[in-house]
Structure formats: C-alpha cells, structure tokens
Design a protein around this nucleic acid. Structure first.
Lengths: 213, 213
DNA sequence: TAGATTGTTAATCGATTAACAATC
DNA sequence: TAGATTGTTAATCGATTAACAATC
C-alpha cells in the first residue's frame, strides 16, 4: 500500500469523513458527490477529492462516490477493521466516563482491564471489570497482548507510568494526563488536553469580543 | 490592541506556551531564551519568536524572556484574567467528570449550574450544585449572565439544545456531543470529539506498523 | 451521446524556517 | 565593550484551491 507521507491535517480529517459518511449511510443515502459532501461537511470539494486520492481513487467520474463503499474504505484506512485490546489506567471520574462509553467498544476498541493505584479502588468493579493494582500492570500488558493504554491519571507520575507501560510493550497511548509524554520512536501518543481546549475557547471568545468593539 | 488575524495554528499553541511557562515558574526558572524553550516545548526557536511577536515584543535582546511576565501576558492573551460563568448540560459520566475537575475553576471558569433532562437526575447534587431541569435552561442563562455552556449530552437533540441556549444568549460552547453544531456568526464553538481522537490514534498505529514491514 | 464529476496538475495561499540587523 | 538573543524580513516549504482533461 503506497504511503505517500500523509500530512497530519489530512489524517485529522479522516475521522470526520468517516462520521459524516456513517450518518449518510444511516439516512440511506447511496451516492454523494464531492460537491454535495462539501456542503455537508464544510471542506471544499477540491480538498475532499485531494484528501481521498491520497489513499486511492474511490469515486467514479460522472457519478461521485458510493457512500457505503467509501465509508468502509475509510474505516479500513483508519484501522477500524480490526480489534484493539486496551487497558485503562486511573479510574477517576474521567476514567469511569470512558469505561462506560460503549461507543468505543462498538468500534472495536475493547477495554480488557482497569488499573488504579488507590487501594480503595482496587477490587471494585465497573461494568464487570475489576479494578486491578497498577503495580501489576506490566505483567498484565505482556500476558494479554494489549495494544493501547488509556491514561487517565494526574500529571504527577504520568511520565513514569508511561515509561513502565512502554517498557512492557504498549504500542499506542491515548493520553488524558496534562503532559506531552516523551516516548521512544515507534510508540504513538494521542493527547487529549481538556484544559488546552478550554483555553482555546476562552481565547476565541475574547478575540471575537474585541473585534466587535 | 492590534489584531493581525492570528492563525488557528498559532492560537492552538498558546495554551501549550502557557502550560510550559507555568511549569518553569513552578520550578523557579526566571528567564528563558527561545532556544531553551524550544528544547523543552518542541517547537523551533524561530517559531516561538514568531508566535509571540504576533502579540507583542515580550523579550529582551541578549536576555530572552522573563518567565513570570511572559506567563502572565499569555494568560491575558488567552483571556484568563477574567472569570467566566458556565453551565454544564448533561450530567452523565463525562459531565460529572468535568464538574468534579477543579482545575477549570482555578483558571476562572466556574460552573454555576448543572442541567439534565432525566427526571431521575433532577434534584440530585454534585459538589453543592443541584441538578436542574433542562427545560428551564433558557431562563437560567438569561438571569445569571452565563458566558459558556458545556454540552455533554448525546448526539440526538444536541443541535436543538444548542439552538435554544444560543437563543438565550450563550456566547461560547464547549461541545462534547459528537456533532459539529451549526451556530450563528459570533458564537464560538470548541468541539472535543473523543471518538475522532481515538480513530486518529488507530490510524497512526496502523501507519506506523505498515512502515515497519 | 451529453452531462456530470472525478482524478490530477498547476497556481495560489499560508505557515514555518532561516538569516541577520538591531539592541540589550 | 563583546556576547547573546530578540524582533523582523526574506526564503522555503507545505497545504489548499482552482482548473481542466479524462472518463463514466
């Protein structure tokens, strides 16, 4: 499969294509042109065609794109045609929210175990999943072929924990701790920083307000 | 204040500057050059100087930047020198997680009220905050000078709810519902889409794996 | 066939990096 | 003063948009 070094800008648009195509599919729309999709999704038709052609020619001249086929193709491109085993570390409010959200499992991401360092949490159950002691996480990762770690612990200790799970063989980290972890080449980290998101909102509200003056 | 139409790329880096400068401050670092900051934060020194100079000349030739002063300036740029009143709508797991996270309040974002449509939730309390009926949200927003709505409800009904709160005078929306809401010009929306984030991780893990072959 | 729409090349626009004079 | 480092201009790089031949 030809990898032409896809830019991050393109990659971040892929899940949006996938979502909008899924909605079209739910509404029994069978075909769509880049122009029509453009009106729904808010990217230019030209950009849509450019984006998709990074991965192959999925359309047909004079017709457009078959919604179902394109949705499936993008799913494959995103790697959603295979299951992932995950562990979640830090069963606080956010960790529980993610554990309880069924949407991820439906997309093939299964949380196999929960971990926490707090003795009061260890042994409790959430959704049939017992909370295990963080101390044993390395052994668990090695023994259960875990691909992804979902890190929901506070800033302090987060880098150290990430060092440990990377050492145990984790390949991808979905990181909610408010740090930019350092990891060896070949380990993928996706950071979700809610504070940064909120501050961006704050900036834009302020800027918007000033423009009005 | 000169607004030179700052690009989104720059804006999204501002919270990172703020965070790293805050950490330097915690570590009693008093001055830093763009080169040193570059090594910590991972942007080029040139980019750092370009970014900052969009907002003013905060440095001093031959010296660098005063950490405390720069941190404060970026805080101002982000609009963190004033308080915001917020309401949170949808007190599920994620909504509770956000309600319980004290970091936002410490930055000046105060959740003044919680709303839910589920009769079982209405009347319950979280952190001294009673959960109110979503039906009365418009009146509440008007009467309490609410700036920001934190939307943590499912996809269905999210656009309708957003229409209502925008009609009631909300100026900024921190949206966790998995839609890209349509809002009138002048209303700021910051979307957090966890599914898109997870799918991006999936793509990058797949790509990384293929490169190794 | 005629009309529509893709895939793809070329043109434009914008963001990042490099370079260096200004100056602390 | 000499050395360091900014602020800013110019050069480069990359991403988006426009255009259109190919073709269904």
């Amino acid at each position: 499969m030809g990898n032409k070094n896809i830019s991050m800008a393109v990659i971040r648009r892929l899940p949006k294509y996938y979502r909008y195509l899924g909605e079209l599919l739910d509404n029994d729309v069978q075909r769509i042109s880049s122009k029509e999709l453009s009106e729904i999704i808010g990217f230019t038709a030209s950009q849509i065609r450019q984006d998709l052609n990074n991965f192959g020619g999925f359309g047909q001249q004079g017709y457009g794109y078959n919604v179902e086929a394109l949705h499936k193709e993008i799913g494959k491109i995103l790697g959603l045609d295979r299951p992932y085993n995950a562990v979640l570390i830090g069963v606080g409010n956010l960790g529980q929210a993610i554990t309880n959200y069924s949407g991820f499992r439906n997309s093939g991401f299964e949380i196999k175990a929960l971990f926490d360092a707090n003795p009061r949490m260890i042994g409790l159950k959430i959704r049939e999943l017992e909370i295990l002691d963080s101390d044993i996480i390395e052994d668990y990762i090695k023994e259960h072929e875990i691909d992804i770690a979902i890190v929901c612990i506070p800033k302090n200790g987060a880098q150290e924990l990430i060092n440990r799970i990377v050492g145990a063989g984790i390949k991808g980290i979905w990181n909610f701790a408010p740090i930019d972890p350092e990891v060896p080449k070949g380990i993928i980290v996706e950071n979700v920083n809610l504070t940064e998101s909120l501050f961006t909102l704050s900036y834009l509200m302020k800027e918007n307000n000033e423009l009005k003056k």
